[in-house]
Amino acid sequence: MNEYLKKYIELKKRFSAADGGPDSVRALYGFKKELEQSGDRQAKEVLVDVYDLLDFKKDAYDLLSRIGNRSDRKVLKRLGTLKEYAESWGNHYAVPMPKTPKEKQQEKERWARMGLPVFRYHPDPLDTGAFKESEEGVVCDCCGKITRLFYTAPFFSVEDIDYLCPECIADGKAAQKYDGSFHDDYSVDDGVDDPERLDELIHRTPGYCGWQQEYWRAHCGDYCAFLGYVGARELRALGVLDEVLDDPMWDEEQKEMIRESVNGGHLQCYLFQCLHCGKHMVWMDFD
């Protein structure tokens, strides 16, 4: 048994024992990078296994197609299986690389360097896809200024709006000008008594895209921060699956659904975090 295979077996055991926890995923990603940079054939053979374990199905199939011995029946059988997944999934359901606190801070600093407003209830709107970047720039319908970043999530108004800049959302001008909102004020958790917080959420906070009606979680008397779109694998990789299951909102059947959810699948989970105690919670819906 070569050294690459020994290390893979060790990392796979850690990954399974940790139920896909963040440290085990980071270790696999580090090993993946090491194997990708190696020219050793044995390294490439193990890289197929790493790709497969992390659900980079297309990458696993493409690599095995190049290096696999097609006279070996086991290789042919595995190629057939990987091809089916590669054509159906691609790399779409790959286990995400958990971000370190340093990387999260760097994202916030990048947003700040661009001179963009801070959204308490949606702190990483570039990462979640609420805004997209345009190299050429577009004209904000609200203020008429050219902006490199434009809003892509729901905005509910009578008029059809193409582009809104972050500033016109943050200061409430877009909602006021078009008598619109970024979220339904009835689709929120109870327990928030301050009307100013509801106003900030629906009129000055970027929304997110749900399969059905978007819903906003609340905790500790305030609305939570929306962190992004997740499935069970993302929750495990972040180390918060048990935490989100410890939620009186869900019964045992619904908890099992969360355990089996797939990001981008028929059952989608949306991750929130309390701004005060840090607790993670989810909302989920079906396509």
Rank of each mutant, 00 (worst) to 15 (best):
Q268N: 14
E214D: 11
R113V: 02
S187I: 02
G80R: 08
R14M: 01
K33L: 14
A170W: 08
C168N: 13
F286L: 12
I67Y: 01
K44F: 06
Y4M: 03
L82R: 13
C269E: 00
K32Y: 03
L53V: 08
H183A: 06
L28E: 00
G21N: 00
L47D: 00
R78P: 03
C224F: 13
A17D: 11
V138E: 06
K32Q: 03
C209P: 01
G180Y: 14
G20C: 00
L245W: 13
D160I: 10
R197W: 05
T205P: 04
K177A: 11
L238V: 02
P101F: 03
F31M: 01
R236H: 00
G137D: 12
C269N: 08
H280R: 06
S88V: 07
I169V: 02
P154C: 11
M1G: 15
A130L: 08
M249I: 15
R41Q: 09
E136L: 05
W89E: 13
H280S: 06
Q42F: 15
Y223P: 01
H276W: 01
Q212H: 15
G239H: 00
G137Y: 04
I202L: 02
S187L: 10
R14Y: 01
C224M: 15
K104T: 15
V188A: 10
V262Y: 05
P154T: 12
A43M: 06
V118A: 07
L76P: 04
D59Q: 08
M249F: 15
P22Q: 02
D194H: 12
E109Y: 03
R217A: 11
L116V: 12
N2I: 14
Y8A: 05
E252M: 14
P101V: 07
H122Y: 07
E34I: 00
I9T: 10
G231F: 00
V230P: 15
E253K: 14
A43S: 01
R73T: 03
G207N: 14
Y151T: 09
I258F: 04
K7M: 13
L271D: 12
H276Q: 07
S157W: 03
D23M: 01
D242G: 15
Q42P: 08
G180H: 13
G129E: 14
A27Y: 04
Y61S: 08
P123C: 05
L116Q: 14
F131R: 02
K255V: 14
D162W: 05
Q37G: 09
V192F: 11
Q106G: 06
